[in-house]
Amino acid sequence: MIKTETGVKQGIEATDEVLIARFQQGDNYAFDLLVKRYKDPLLNFVYRFLGEKNDAEDIVQETFLRLFKNKHYYKEIAKFSTWIYTIAGNLAKTELRKRKRHSLFSISHYMSTEKDYEIPDESGSPERDANSVITDKIIQKAINKLSPKFKQVIVLRDIQGFSYEEITGIADIPLGTVKSRVNRARLKLQEDLKHLMNDV
């Protein structure tokens, strides 16, 4: 549980919006707490989006750097999580476009090689068996094949657990489009992962 300095004493967990307000007023400790609260969720989001952990870390760092520089741009009309995920998502999309432009999108993305993916760090979950690791890799490979617009919504909805309404805010698309894209992304994935499902 993350608490502010005052909150720790009072046993109250500060909301994101309280923390960003405090940070806007010059309390850098609130920034620390926001980083601690969001670095792993954002990293997972961007990692699933890009399929590469080092690049994902760079993107998340850039996201926090922008938060630090542009803290006053945040207005409390939106949830802080929506705002920070929007920044991270836009940076991730830009990174994907950059890769495409610079032809870094190698043919290996379409082949079955293990070099394409970084194996998630499993040190924190020793009980996981080899099958789960393989399943994760296969799933990530299928996600990598999706176009960015499908990737974004499926990661936010099914991996990160956001509501459709929240995704609307992050992706800046209408609710109907979000629902339609999530469904289509799921259908594409299940088509690609049929063999996995039949094996299990």
């Binding site: 924190g124 399943t135 099914d158 657990g161 299940q190």
Partner: peptide, 18 residues
């Protein structure tokens, strides 16, 4: 059935840590 299996798997993918 595939969709149900898929969404369950996606919910349980291994998280990465910074």
């Amino acid at each position: 059935a595939n969709l149900q299996f898929l969404t369950q798997k996606l919910r349980n993918v291994s998280p990465v840590a910074a």
